[in-house]
């Protein structure tokens, strides 16, 4: 089955260390909420604002999830120190989009997928099926793993420790002009590659329409 999605807008951020200028103070005026946000949550909120998100349903993807909160918890258990409730509540994979839904008061469906290096492809496939309801969707994939022991985990020697890509899409019957060809982006987490490929192609295509095969 093939489903065509019109890319209404897309945006990509990436940094070797930490994505700067995420406009946190503007986008999250409440200090208490802002202080609780994880890195991936800040990236997700920023990306949503950049693609013109207006409380659409959200399909989110993350391969590694909340790496910092997860490591903090396991170290706390190992060292028998007090476990932070905030670390635990921020440790699940849908944390970034949960904060986004709270911030934007979006009561619609939010779902999260995680398939290691195929994560962004899973976001696209999930989005394609859900788009058949004919509403606009926010598709997003974020991985932020700039943690203290990153060198112990980063076996692929990725240099971009924070990256995210988002696109606003809707289903269309128009002919596709973008196809997923599994391009590689050596510095960025493979979990983002398929969406990143579409984002780059969409930047150079008039009326970009991607074909998603299920």
């Amino acid at each position: 089955m093939k489903i065509n999605l019109k890319i209404l807008n897309s945006h990509f951020v990436s940094a070797t260390d930490k994505c700067e200028n995420l406009e946190e103070k503007t986008l999250v005026p409440k200090m208490m909420l802002r202080r609780r946000l994880t890195r991936a949550s800040k990236i997700a909120i920023f990306l949503a604002s950049k693609v013109g998100y207006k409380n659409e349903r959200i399909i989110f993807g993350s391969a590694y999830g909340e790496a910092k909160a997860t490591i903090d918890i396991i170290e706390s258990i190992y060292n028998k120190t007090l476990l932070s409730p905030t670390a635990f509540q921020n440790s699940v994979h849908n944390t970034p989009v949960s904060y986004l839904s709270i911030l934007s008061e979006n009561t619609k469906e939010v779902t999260t997928v995680s398939d290691l290096f195929d994560t962004s492809l899973s976001v696209l496939k999930t989005g394609a099926i859900k788009a058949l309801k004919k509403d606009k969707l926010l598709l997003m994939s974020v991985d932020a793993f700039n943690i203290d022991k990153v060198e112990e985990l980063n076996k692929c020697k990725l240099t971009q420790l924070e990256s995210g890509v988002a696109m606003l899409v809707e289903v269309t019957q128009e002919k596709a002009n973008i196809f997923v060809e599994n391009e590689t982006f050596a510095k960025t987490s493979p979990s983002l590659w398929q969406m990143l490929e579409i984002h780059h192609k969409a930047q150079n295509t008039q009326n970009p329409i991607v074909e998603i095969e299920l």
Binding site: G65, V92, H93, N94, V110, T111, T112, V113, S114, D115, S122, K125, T126, I129, K130, L132, L214
Partner: peptide, 20 residues
């Protein structure tokens, strides 16, 4: 595809299964 939304993870997998 793997869904991970904490305690609704497999329910969201069921929702997607129906959509497929």
């Amino acid at each position: 595809i793997t869904f991970s939304t904490a305690c609704t993870s497999s329910s969201n997998a069921l929702v997607f299964a129906k959509e497929l």
